[in-house]
Write a protein that binds this DNA or RNA. Structure first.
Lengths: 256, 256
DNA sequence: CCAAAAGTGTTGGTCGTACACCCATGC
DNA sequence: GCATGGGTGTACGACCAACACTTTTGG
């Protein structure tokens, strides 16, 4: 009857059945990246009920020894080589959101360059998969690599709602914060076109090259948060692009 | 040993001692208003340990029957005649934030006109008090009605940090959302000067009258979210002010 | 030379800022 | 009339959008 219990060391042992007189807290992660010029989300396929074989956000119960943020970081350590940009998104606490019992979820937004996700995809290709997120519409639409489409009702729990909240937050913060840089493979060496691709993927619209550049220069270069190096991209087609560098301004302000 | 337990009906019975193997979730409220042209916060004086006799945010444990938002609403029902603007702020989950045990807090921002707080202040004047919030500085400074000053370390738990987070959020959202209107006594009849007072109180700066008006008109009147009535304020000094009316655009989007 | 991608310049409109000025009321 | 608060007008600079144009590479 009461199989799921929290113990002080290792968190939850088994989750198939939860104590009905107790309240549980989990962390769910929206691991997002830019892949093939599209906003892309990492989902994991559930193996156990409820929602067995459905796609869900990677998550973990919060144990007695970890804060929500630490729980998120621990989960991310199993997936990514380095700690990505991480921001608390929202806490979901509707009564019926988990059929197993009373589970509250603190959702986090994690943004990383796709390069860092490749290792997980290779190792755990069975359980994890990348889905393109349609960013030009209000309703949720996810597209898998084989072309399969998921809408909000196809996902486990209330994860569709969580994803929509995350996409809105990302789009909202893109043009008044640093957040877009988190998707760049190397913040010490990137081109303005790469940065523009990030913005276009997130917003789901194309921008004018000239205007985008001026906008970025006004926002970041005039204030010293970004610098132009004297290096250039060598290999590609066309005229070589100038390489820019983001200045790490580590004000670790929790800007929720 | 284990006095504090959650039961299905009534939530927590006693809080002086919590089960050390269990995780608890509370809701804490930042009830804010504008009073005497200053941003003002409602605090409650703790009667029980820990932090007995210290000032703290009003809060309540989440029981098995209520979501976080519902818990916040229930708490607010005991304080205010009508439901105020309510928005989830952030979830605080540091391990040491409550000496009684492992308590996670979901903080909410509640904004109301001062008029609606007067009844609580009158009824429960002993436990509740209004503190002016210094909005022109990064560090926390609260000033009570008798002139007493509180800084972050004077408050119970991590409530100082919660308050700082709330003030930042309020200031950040003031000029790209509706949020300022929540402080108006009557959204169907207010003057632009009243609205300007709200903005000045929240931001801690003065604005140019002419520019503020044009800005508001561009933002809200051109888009039909606000209308000018043909009524005027009668009683006061000086030229009578035109009365405006906010159009209720009930998109209940969770814009966290 | 041509395609492709990077990068610059120009022009018109909108908006924020600073500041000077006019209007209606109470006393 | 005069103080008080409400409300308008103007002029400058910054910035955004649209669009035409130039520069440097590979093939």
């Amino acid at each position: 009857m009461v199989k799921g219990t929290i113990n002080r060391r290792g968190g939850i042992r088994t989750h198939t059945e939860l104590n009905q007189d107790q309240l549980y807290v989990t962390v769910d992660l929206l691991v997002m990246t830019i892949r093939q010029e599209r906003l892309t989300l990492l989902l994991s396929r559930r193996t156990n009920p409820p929602y067995a074989s459905r796609w869900a956000l990677p998550g973990h119960f919060i144990g007695m020894e970890d804060s929500a943020e630490k729980t998120a970081e621990n989960l991310l350590k199993e997936m990514l080589p380095v700690r990505p940009y991480l921001e608390q998104l929202y806490t979901f606490s509707a009564l019926n959101r988990d059929p197993r019992g009373r589970v509250i979820s603190v959702a986090y937004l994690a943004l990383a360059p796709f390069k860092q996700l490749e290792s997980v995809m290779a190792r755990q290709g069975n359980t994890f998969a990348a889905f393109q997120v349609a960013t030009d519409r209000e309703e949720l639409l996810l597209t898998g690599e084989s072309g399969e489409e998921l809408t909000e009702t196809d996902l486990a729990f209330d994860h569709g709602k969580i994803i929509r909240t995350g996409v809105r937050r990302l789009q909202g913060k893109l043009d008044y914060t640093d957040i877009g840089f988190a998707f760049l493979e190397n913040q010490d060496a990137f081109t303005l076109t790469e940065l523009q691709t990030v913005h276009e993927a997130v917003m789901g619209t194309k921008f004018d090259k000239s205007n985008f550049r001026r906008q970025i220069q006004n926002r970041y270069i005039r204030s010293g948060q970004m610098k132009s190096t004297d290096m250039q991209i060598s290999g590609g087609q066309g005229r070589p692009a100038g390489i820019y560098r983001k200045i790490r301004t580590d004000d670790s302000t929790i800007w929720s």
